[in-house]
């Protein structure tokens, strides 16, 4: 008798969940109200993976794509730029998102695996340097000053070391973690590959960096433009002296026209030729991404490229068919 209790409870627990899991798809197929325009009949699936920076743009693209093609299945993963390329090389994905250009060794592995691909730029991001609003002395920083502050070998530990007349207070640094493409880019253009200041607080969560600067009058942090755009009221932007000697701060114009350099960086998608030829869903998704990327970029806090670049990309993509 009691044996049956055990079986009953155990079985009904798992059966209930199984039923719940299996029972859901039909319910959704009846839910055709979102499907008022007849779909083109794209029913395949597309696998996208890669950078967490690019993710919000591709999430937006996939969201709209799924509304227009309710039967298509787009999966957007977040493994970081490097992790994304790893899967791209393994042939697991059709499109790889990256917040940095592909590395030589990754390109070599792709060649070895006989995977042909094309790189497309889909948006721009401007790494933004911010300080606490109480900081009323910083007017701008040059690249050399940034190196002095951020590199372990640099000789600026206090604001006074950076420029005479600034307070003799130690600078508290907040940087994205070493796994992120943001760190890679900063490492390349500012640190030139040198060791970052060992006292800097590193976090993979950019919101922590924002909070760090908000709570520390001598704080200095850098992160993607979207995080600055969302926190304009509580942190203060530091303009940068670019290579032409102009003092620029990041905003959609300076990032788009390239004058906010060298801290503007392009965001990429890499598409696999084979998928473009054989997989209609992957091709349509890539096309849709290039058409929508600008709009999505603005919406989620990045900066769109000039329209002409998207048009060129679309032509290139069509030639891959």
């Amino acid at each position: 008798m009691r044996m049956t209790n055990f079986v009953k409870i155990g079985a009904s627990l798992s059966a209930a969940l199984l039923l719940a899991a299996c029972g859901t798809p039909p319910e959704d197929e009846n839910n055709a109200e979102t499907n008022d325009e007849p779909s083109e009949g794209i029913t395949g699936s597309v696998q996208v993976d890669g950078s967490s920076t690019v993710f919000p743009i591709m999430e937006g693209v996939a969201e709209e794509f799924s509304i227009e093609n309710p039967k298509a299945r787009a999966t957007i993963g977040v493994s970081g730029s490097g992790g994304g390329f790893e899967k791209f090389i393994a042939g697991e994905t059709d499109i790889s998102n990256a917040s940095r250009p592909i590395k030589e060794e990754e390109a070599a592995l792709l060649e070895e695996a006989d995977i042909e691909y094309t790189e497309f730029k889909i948006a721009l991001d401007g790494l933004s340097l911010v300080v606490n609003p109480e900081n009323d002395w910083v007017d701008y920083l040059t690249l050399d000053e940034l190196y002095a502050i951020w590199a372990e070998e640099g000789d600026a530990d206090t604001w006074a070391d950076v420029r005479d007349g600034w307070p003799d207070e130690e600078i508290e640094l907040f940087s994205p973690g070493t796994d992120s493409g943001t760190y890679d880019y900063f490492d390349e253009v500012i640190l030139d590959g040198d060791q970052i200041e060992r006292d800097a607080s590193l976090s993979e969560d950019d919101n922590i960096l924002v909070q760090g600067v908000q709570g520390s009058p001598n704080g200095l942090a850098y992160f993607g433009y979207a995080y600055y755009a969302e926190n304009m009221d509580t942190v203060k932007i530091v303009p940068i002296k670019n290579s032409k000697g102009e003092i620029v701060e990041p905003n959609s114009e300076t990032i788009q026209d390239g004058s906010y350099e060298p801290l503007s960086r392009p965001l990429f998608i890499y598409v696999k030729h084979e998928s473009m030829e054989d997989n209609d869903t992957a091709y349509e998704f890539a096309k849709y991404s290039l058409e929508m990327a600008g709009e999505m970029a603005d919406e989620v806090g990045y900066v769109a490229l000039k329209d002409s670049i998207y048009e060129e990309s679309l032509e290139t993509l069509e030639s891959l068919r």
């Binding site: 859901t24 798809p25 959704d28 993976d49 993710f55 591709m58 999430e59 996939a62 969201e63 799924s66 298509a72 299945r73 787009a74 999966t75 957007i76 993963g77 977040v78 493994s79």
Partner: peptide, 15 residues
């Protein structure tokens, strides 16, 4: 690799 955006109902255990 479960950190994904998915806008469809998984139909099989391989999704």
């Amino acid at each position: 690799g479960a950190m994904t955006f998915i806008a469809y109902i998984p139909a099989s255990v391989l999704d």
